[in-house]
Design a protein around this nucleic acid. Structure first.
Lengths: 328, 328
DNA sequence: CTGAAAGCGCTTACAG
DNA sequence: CTGAAAGCGCTTACAG
């Protein structure tokens, strides 16, 4: 920076101002910018960060970066942040490192703001996050005091339920992720509640709910357990497309036609849902990531902490060949 | 830090030393650490970075963060880096922003090292990366002067080719990603070469190669084009499992049995490959991410620039139900 | 509009 | 083993 100042014949204070938006005579700014370009000057984030207190960096905390949902969130958030000139630190904090992460909070002093993707946070975790004293935005859930971006899980699940009921199904089951895994519990609970309500509203007795480890394999196992029963349902609702894929796999191996004998519906609209002809309740995931990033940007620039911000993005039913009326 | 020094009754220099490994009397260190803990002291990365010149941050540059391969790389690298106490900045630089990214290199002064996941880099890009003057490691390709972690793509594809030939197939086709997209070209070229060599070594004339946009949809379209021909192949090799999924989808819709009439083989061992019973050449992706991270750590600590480092991880054929002998 | 100066929070030779 | 001091590269009141 001193070099640039010398080269442009001004003080470093002026260089600093010209490089940002601050008040500088147009001619001076022009000269400084040219010098900076010629010398290939790049501002030192450390120097700038130390004196301004801003890092120009945002943290994105996700539990399972490789799952479809979270990888889409990553893309949406990263794009929006990069466009705004912010860098993104990614923390993939799943089940194992979760406690240590929240206890030590490596974000402290490292970032200006953070997006936390989590369906549930313990009171302790909420407290620790708040103690960071930086703008936060929560993705995937609504928790008192945190600005949030999410979908209406109950409504999404109810949509699936009404679709199945509308097709004439009277015996339905639901496949869910494992509730012993604290990450994601709240989402599961909401989808379960929404689906159950929709089913019962149709005068059908509540769905059987089978819980297995989250994912394709878990979905397959859950379906296997259902098939082990005497009285088979005619329709399955899976908490996520990935669990639905596993269920469809088990059905195929068992020689049970989808949707001839059993219909399957998921949630997400995973890229593969189309290839597998899975009926699903689509949710906009990249958009949720981008919206969470933008919520942060607002807080960062307006410095208005919108703790009541609650953006609920729409879902929509996508009917494909995996759902049809039950067999006669 | 001044607070900690006061609280512990030592100078800030001693606090700084005690907090790292530097030489400090055990009793003093103990005292300092206790004070730091009591005061909930956290080192300021900006302060530390400014005076030491180290950022304790590594960049991970990927082209398509949401694709299976890259999301697995992200997980592998992030875990290894976090264990080493390094933070990871993620840059999702696909086709669109690629030029601007390499021209401006936002990594400058921001990170101590970078993992670049790319199958090909233009000479310009290579030059720009080198100009960063930091340890680099390249994932997915081997380029002169960059330490690299990868698989042997030719060998992987040849394995698939020999498998099909061994089953008795004499008419095979290959589905590849679009070569007009510069990202990934080299990988495609190597797999194509490896597969072709294996096929021709069996005395069969080279495979027909169909190129479509990378991904499930592209794979489906490529398969559609193949089906439009008079003389159908009895086996398909797809550059990736995702393209293979698309191909299988098209085959199912067309009522063509897999593997009864056409066998399908992919590369990756995507989580869904098992559910879809896809024969594939598995590659360890998380491990590649972790290995690339470790290569960086070595350079960072030993300060030995191992530009000749070239780690080639093994692949293995996983035979499932999508491949079988050709119909009589 | 511009500059001189203080200061952000550390690390690291240099002495002792 | 420990401390005083310089300095890393910026930003930002404070003057003018």
């Amino acid at each position: 920076m001193a070099d640039v100042a010398r080269h442009a014949g001004v003080s470093i204070a002026t260089v600093s101002r010209a490089l940002r938006d601050a008040a500088v005579a147009p001619a001076t700014r022009e000269r400084v910018l040219r010098s900076a370009r010629e010398l290939e000057y790049v501002t030192s984030p450390a120097g700038s960060g130390l004196s301004s207190g801003r890092t120009k960096t945002v943290a994105l905390v996700v539990p399972f970066a490789a799952r479809w949902f979270f990888s889409e969130v990553i893309v949406g958030a990263e794009t929006a942040l990069r466009e705004a000139g912010l860098d993104m630190l990614l923390y993939n904090i799943g089940r194992t490192d979760r406690e240590r992460f929240f206890a030590t909070l490596p974000l402290r002093r490292r970032v200006d703001a953070a997006i936390v993707v989590a369906s549930s946070l313990t009171p302790d975790q909420q407290h620790q996050l708040r103690s960071l004293g930086i703008p936060l935005s929560l993705l995937g859930s609504r928790i008192e005091g945190f600005p949030s971006v999410r979908i209406d899980d109950e409504h999404a699940a109810a949509t699936a339920g009404r679709h199945l009921v509308g097709l004439g199904h009277r015996r339905v089951a639901m496949i869910c992720g494992d509730p012993s895994n604290p990450v994601g519990t709240a989402t599961t609970a909401r989808r379960r509640a929404g689906f159950t309500t929709a089913i019962e509203a149709a005068g059908i007795c509540g769905p059987e709910v089978v819980e297995e480890e989250w994912g394709i394999t878990g979905g397959g196992r859950a379906m296997g357990r259902i098939l082990g029963q005497a009285d088979l349902p005619t329709a399955i609702f899976a908490e996520s497309d990935e669990m639905a894929f596993g269920a469809m796999h088990t059905l195929r191996r068992a020689g049970i036609g989808v949707p001839d004998r059993i219909s399957v519906v998921g949630v997400d609209d995973h890229e593969l849902a189309m290839a597998l002809e899975l009926t699903t309740v689509a949710q906009p995931v990249k958009e949720q990531g981008a919206a969470a990033a933008r919520a942060l940007l607002h807080q960062l620039t307006d410095s208005i902490p919108p703790s009541n911000y609650d953006r609920v993005l729409p879902t929509r039913l996508v009917v494909r060949r995996s759902s049809a009326p039950p067999p006669p």
